[in-house]
Amino acid sequence: MRILVVEDDPVLSDGLKVGLGLYGATLDIVASCADGHAALAADDFDALVLDLMLPDGSGLELLAALRARGDRTPVLLLTALDDVADRIRGLDAGADDYLGKPFDLEELAARVRAISRRQEGRASPQASYNGVTLNPARLTVTVNGTDIGLSRREFAVLAALMNRPGTVLSKGDLEAKLYGWQEEVESNTVEVHVHKLRVKIGRTKIETLRGIGYRMRPVAS
């Protein structure tokens, strides 16, 4: 899961990067509204964690601009302004959830998972398809009831494919889910992860569409 965090406090944003990383997310961090706009224009994110009081304006303006151009990225407001009135204003401006500072890291991770899975049209915390069940909260995968141990990257690739089973994801799409901007993308890494996944969950579960990308193999075929 790829998350954009707009937060100007260096200690907190470092904490979010490492902390949400522990829960299997890939984070990109920007510290101003302007950088937030640029990041959202350049990349797709599964969720946006947004501070309200930013040095160059209010996060609400960023949110309003985002919604105005039809961007449906789930947004969680993370701010010290957590009066009821502030929460209402934030949610009415198009936010999906609201969390006041200071917060619990696990709760933040859970809320981010919740808003992004609703975005995918799923209410169930687990994603199941063709015998594969993925639990994002516990970072566990079972195939036909058997637990499978996956690395963080392998889990991220499988989670991306399971989000909308049947949809084809290109190699670039999967790389974007795996790596933040600062991270070096190793060549062939997606192929390597897909290969390892096939070994662990079964050869036929993931289908390669040559020159296009990967998808979960449809059940009927």
Binding site: E7, D9, V11, L12, S13, D14, G15, L16, V18, G19, L22, D51, L52, M53, L78, T79, A80, L81, G100, K101, P102, F103, D104, L105, E106
Partner: peptide, 30 residues
């Protein structure tokens, strides 16, 4: 007051998050 709250609660949130990371981290460098 709102600014003061923000300015104090943000570093507190940072401290709490880092503390949780320190507790949850399995490796020494983290």
């Amino acid at each position: 007051t709102a600014f003061a709250a923000h300015e104090l609660r943000t570093p507190l949130a940072g401290l709490r998050t880092q503390a949780q990371i320190a507790m949850a981290a399995r490796d020494e460098p983290t």
